[in-house]
Design a protein around this nucleic acid. Structure first.
Length: 469
RNA sequence: GGCGCGGUAGCCAAGUGGUAAGGCAGCGGUCUGCAAAACCGCCAAUCGCGGGUUCGAUUCCCGCUCGCGCCUCCA
């Protein structure tokens, strides 16, 4: 088997990757904080992870993916208090929306979607281990912190020397009780507003709630084991989130937490980071309002390598909408063809190999897309020639299935009700009659009438077909 | 201030020590009653600027410039 290359943030190099057991890739991906519907920046990362898991599967490994749902944090607690709800009442609907949007973008479901609030016991156990090892302590404010001085490896992932932080950096001023300003909270002592919204639990250190980083370590190790193969997320999680995960996990177990760390770059809008505080947030809802198919969104996201920043624009989405239509048209053509020239077989074999190679080379999706479109072009040209080689056609179908099994770019049929289908069929018959008597004025009028509704008629050798745009 | 990433055709964007994928847009043609789709052809890149290494650099090194990100809870 050929090797599978991935960029590992730990080494800052592209290196060969494979699961420790040679069979199954255990991967943990940091999921959404279910406070607001995730925005497209979040989904760029989830789409990168979708491409990753599908590419690993294509390579022949099975994948066991965990994506956590952070359902307890400051913002959620604040909102629950404002609305007089419990945190669960705030987060449940957002979890539903997340899965709706995930489905729209065709992101395959992970094997596990653990919620932080369902793993309180495991988190408490982890903190106990850290205290027993002497790397965590309870401060005067009753919260428990991790002492980064006790973990010499701290900073290895982010390559940040915390002593070097200077002017210009955002540095919190209000942490008085910690031994060291960089120590991070494992367990936060409960406040009244936490209790009010059911965001506090019993623990050996008094009532409280978990710190942000703790859930990922506890859930990853509980579900996947103390050493996992792959851990992925957005670049902004490198520090402090992933750095802290490594510290608390490895300090507790004495083992490597994650063998490989992968991080996806940002989605920008007007060359600036997409963030709620900047007010330039696009969500899945906006794409749906414009009638954009999830396949087009995937094409857009895969058009740029995952480690490069990507700028969002209406023009780019429009280009993707058209590109993906071309893929869908070929899919339909392959499905209905009766035969093809024999040369199609070699073209298909080459395309499939090129796509596999591109994905195995650090998920080079742009290059995979290039190979796909070369295939689209060549296959169309050959199908135009006609031919009766059924085996070659079958080979092309299977190659296309493999390629699209990863990229998933065929736009879905837009829902059509029976009444519309019947009406269009009737109009097509009327137009056929008009054309037969060479009444092209009437023929064009019917076509224009349907075009106004977004329906395009295509006259082919087999008759007239239609589709929505 | 520290660290990191990027500047490739009108737009988006791969890639390579031996003059550059693909998508979108544009132009001409085939097909069609006309279209659409498809196909054929064309157009379009001194690969940010200045040095250096090399037989040869867009690709390696140095400097500069512009843009973006990270430096405590934001994918």
């Amino acid at each position: 088997m050929s090797e599978f290359l991935l960029y590992n943030t730990l080494s800052r190099q592209v290196e060969p990757f494979g699961p420790a057991d040679g069979v199954r890739v255990r991967m943990y991906t940091c999921g959404p904080t279910v406070y607001n519907p995730a925005h497209l920046g979040n989904f760029r990362t989830f789409l990168f992870e979708d491409l990753l898991r599908r590419s690993l599967a294509l390579r022949g490994w099975s994948v066991e993916q965990v994506m956590n749902l952070t359902d307890v944090d400051d913002k959620i607690i604040k909102r629950a208090n404002e609305r007089g709800l419990t945190i669960r009442e705030v987060t449940d609907p957002v979890v539903d929306i997340f899965h709706t949007h995930r489905t729209y973008l065709r992101i395959q479901p992970a094997e596990h979607y653990p919620r932080a609030t369902d793993y309180i016991a495991q988190m408490i156990t982890l903190v106990e281990r850290l205290i027993a090892k002497g790397v965590a302590y309870q401060a005067e404010d009753r919260s428990v912190y991790f002492a980064i001085d006790k973990f010499p490896e701290y900073g290895r992932l982010s390559r940040l020397d915390t002593r070097e932080i200077k002017a210009g950096a955002r540095v919190s001023q209000d942490e008085y009780t910690k031994d060291n300003a960089q120590d991070f909270a494992l367990w936060k002592a409960a406040k009244e507003e936490d209790e009010r919204v059911e965001a506090a639990w019993e623990s050996p250190w008094g009532r409280g709630r978990p710190g942000w980083h703790l859930e990922c370590s506890a859930m990853a190790m509980d579900i996947l084991g103390e050493t996992i193969d792959l851990h992925a997320g957005g670049v902004d999680l490198i520090f402090p989130h992933h750095e802290d995960e490594i510290a608390q996990s490895e300090a507790a177990t004495g083992r490597v937490f994650a063998r490989c760390w992968c991080h996806g770059e940002f989605l920008l809008v007007d060359s600036a980071k997409m963030a709620k505080r900047v007010g330039n947030v696009w969500g899945v809802a906006e794409l749906q309002e414009e009638g954009l198919d999830g396949a087009a969104a995937r094409h857009f996201m895969f058009g740029t390598h995952y480690r490069q920043q990507l700028n969002l624009s209406s023009d780019a989405l429009e280009a993707s909408r058209k590109a993906v239509r071309r893929v869908g048209d070929l899919a339909a053509r392959l499905a209905t063809a009766k035969g093809a020239p024999s040369a199609l077989s070699a073209v298909a074999v080459e395309a499939e190999a090129d796509v596999r190679a591109a994905l195995a080379n650090d998920l080079n999706a742009p290059q995979a897309l290039s190979a796909l479109f070369i295939f689209v072009n060549r296959a169309n040209a050959l199908l135009d020639q006609g031919g009766d080689d059924v085996a070659a056609l079958e080979r092309a179908r299977s190659a296309f299935a493999v390629i699209d099994g990863v990229l998933d770019l065929v736009p879905g049929p837009i829902a059509v009700d029976d009444a519309l289908a019947t009406r269009v069929a009737g109009l097509i018959e009327d137009r056929k009659a008009a054309r037969a008597r060479r009444d092209f004025g009437e023929s064009d009028r019917i076509r224009a009438e349907l075009a106004a509704e977004g329906i395009v008629l295509e006259d082919g050798p087999e008759g007239t077909t239609w589709k929505r745009t």
